[in-house]
Amino acid sequence: MSGLEVVKPGVLSLLQDCGRYGVALQGLSSGGAMDLHAFGWVNRLLSNHSNAAVVELTMGNASFRASCDVKLALCGAEMAAKVDGLAQPNWQSFILRQGQLLELGYARAGLRAYLAVEGGFQVTETLGSVATVTRNRLGGLRDGLSLQAGDRLPVAKQLLANFHSEVPKAFQGRYPEQLNLSLIESYQAPLFSESAKRAFYQGEYKVKPESDRMGIRLSGPVVSWQHAGLVSEGIAQGAVQIPPDGQPIVLMNDRQTLGGYPKLGCVARLSLNALAQARPGTGIRFVPADLDEQSEKWRSFLRFFEF
């Protein structure tokens, strides 16, 4: 049944889940929610399956109208949500009655908010996932398109249990203007010169406005690469690629599957959740991290959210 109508899709609203897997062999990107922390919580608040489809709002300025009573939750970037003009706090579940309007402003802190409905949005999967990958023209309501005004998002039967849940304060995301990212050195790290690595670790980078779901582009000290080009190889989530201009790009969910630029390693998965919320201009520093330690943290994260 139709549950929520997109009145205004805002800057970019996309249906997402954990992503599409088993498709890289065909050259397709996984897609999926960029910030798995806020994504995990928004489904948790509604006791949804951990892979339930949600709407990822980038930058905000969107609105939705309920076509029937629905139980929703909102997590992630602070977008000053309002229900029929009254403030609706972030990181909580709430009920939107038939005909009521949910409005989100422009993001004030963080970049991406996640809107979930009880039971998850009921959208037909493409190749095993609802994830919208615009550049592959795949997923979402149709052909990888972002949500458009007038789109109707189907929902499951709503139980509407009248208690509201809230993410404990300590776990609510905070989105600072300076981020330290843990970096796991791998790939071509041993081939970069000492001075290139010094520039990389000692410098401060800024998130460029042309960052998107493919990659977070940074500007700052040049990281030089003295060797020839590489044979193209598979690119992991969070890989830090150094193109010929020496300005790092952190490759994210919609990245190309193969690439021939040298890579210093990968941003740790937990740091990627924070990076997904970094607005243009956010200051970035890289800190070398231990693989085993980060792996243990990531396993705890996966266990907690049952991913």
Partner: peptide
């Protein structure tokens, strides 16, 4: 094993760390 990316000289493997260790 959740994803495999073969290329000219290499094979990238993505695994689910709760289902298998490195």
């Amino acid at each position: 094993l959740v994803e495999v990316v073969p290329s000219y000289t290499s094979l990238l493997l993505e695994f689910h760390p709760l289902r298998i260790s490195r």
